[in-house]
Each structure stands twice: as C-alpha cells, then as structure tokens.
C-alpha cells in the first residue's frame, strides 16, 4: 500500500470538526441529563407496586430497548410529525429520541441496583423506625447508586457513541461534519480517521475512569 497521508486539506476545516464535536458533546450530556430524570421516574414507576403504572413503564422500556436507535430517530423525525399533524425540528427529534432511548436503559440499571441491595438493609432501617421514604433515601439509594456507577458510566459511553446516529437526520454533529469535510476535500481516510481519533480522545478517559471506579468499589466492598 502506498497511500500518501495528507491531513493538510482536512485540517483546514478544523473549525467544522470542533463545532461538530461540541454538538456531539451537547447532545450527549443533554440526553444523559434528561435520561437520568426519565430513568429515575421510570425506575420509581417499576418499583411502585402499582400495577397500571408499572405496566406503562414496562411498555415504554421495552419499546425503546427492543428497537434500534436508528429506527427510533427515523420514526420520531419522519413518522411522528404525521401522527401529531405538525412538524418537528430535527434537533428536537434528536434530543427527544436520545433521551428516551438512554432513559429506558438507565431505568433498568437503577432498578437493578436498588433490587440488589440486601433485604436486611430495608429491615435494619425499618427496625429503627424509618419510613420507607427515609429508608430509600438514606440507606438504599446511596448504596445502590454506588454499586451501579460503573454500569451507568458504561451506558453513558455508549450514549456518546450513539449520538453519531443523529447525523442521519441532519443534525450537524461530529460524524456529520466529518462527512461534510470529506465531501469538500475528497480525503475520506483523513476525515474519518480524524473523526475516530476525536471520539477516542473523548471516550478513553471515561472508560478508564469507569475501570478505576470499578476496581475501587471492589476494594471497599
């Protein structure tokens, strides 16, 4: 193979890459923020013991866990507007879909953490007269959240990568910008390698942090 690497042309569009990266970060953290809220509410619904509420939460979770994110994005952008008889901004559709998608997974992570706490902890809290709210808030949740932290970070890393799919509905994220630069420069190897490098640069510290936290938690247990 005798390819002449030349990043010169590609790097002239560094501002596009930077802007794309910024958009990717905004959609990632925005959807994580909304996803945490949705996840907590869904988790509470699942654990509520109310049959109807639990059923609704489950249907939501399974719909979003059992369809590909790409399909969800296409549906929310192209199909949903017909259903409500209006139009939907592609940025709104992207953030909505990403949040609902990750929320369904977060809910399952949170629920797993809460359910994994020993029954004796509930009993010990109850035995000193705590209400179930006090017990959940002071005893169960702090332990559960610590336990699920590695899974939570892993899911968030996946979310960061999944954000690249919003480029299919023309949200100008990093993947979209790489395609734009490729179109201008006809340098796919350089454009897409630079994009991949930027993803790695962003996510490597996160996966390392997750591993480190996981090791530390093992020691303190």
């Amino acid at each position: 193979m005798n390819y002449n690497w030349d990043f010169h042309a590609v790097l002239q569009s560094w501002d596009l890459f930077l802007w794309g990266l910024w958009i990717t970060i905004i959609y990632t953290f925005g959807s994580i923020l909304f996803g945490v809220v949705i996840g907590f509410l869904t988790c509470a619904a699942r654990l509520s013991g109310l049959w109807g509420v639990n059923a609704i939460a489950r249907v939501y979770q399974e719909m979003f866990r059992c369809t590909p994110l790409l399909v969800q994005l296409l549906w929310f952008y192209y199909a949903f507007p017909l259903l409500i008889g209006g139009s939907i901004d592609n940025r709104v559709a992207a953030l909505l879909t990403l949040s609902l998608y990750v929320g369904a997974f977060y809910a399952e992570i949170f629920r797993g953490g809460i359910v994994s706490i020993d029954k004796g902890q509930h009993e010990a809290a109850a035995a000193i007269g705590m209400s179930s709210w006090q017990s959940m808030y002071r005893i169960i949740l702090p332990q559960a959240m610590k336990r699920v932290l590695p899974s939570f970070i892993n899911q968030s890393v996946i979310q960061f990568k999944n954000t690249s799919l919003v480029s299919v509905i023309s949200v100008a994220d990093l993947a979209y910008m790489a395609a734009v630069v490729n179109g201008q420069t006809y340098r796919p190897l350089e454009s897409y390698t630079l994009m991949a490098g930027l993803y790695i640069a962003m996510l490597l510290p996160l996966t390392q942090a997750a591993d480190w936290i996981e090791r530390r938690l093992k020691v303190s247990d």
């Binding site: 020993d118 009993e123 010990a124 332990q143």
Partner: peptide
C-alpha cells in the same frame, strides 16, 4: 421496640 438481627445488617456506607 428495637431489634437486632442474625446478620447484623449494619449500614455499610
């Protein structure tokens, strides 16, 4: 009415 359990159930955190 206090209770003490077989498996202690101390709060580990």
């Amino acid at each position: 009415v206090g209770m003490v359990f077989q498996h202690f159930n101390l709060f580990p955190h």
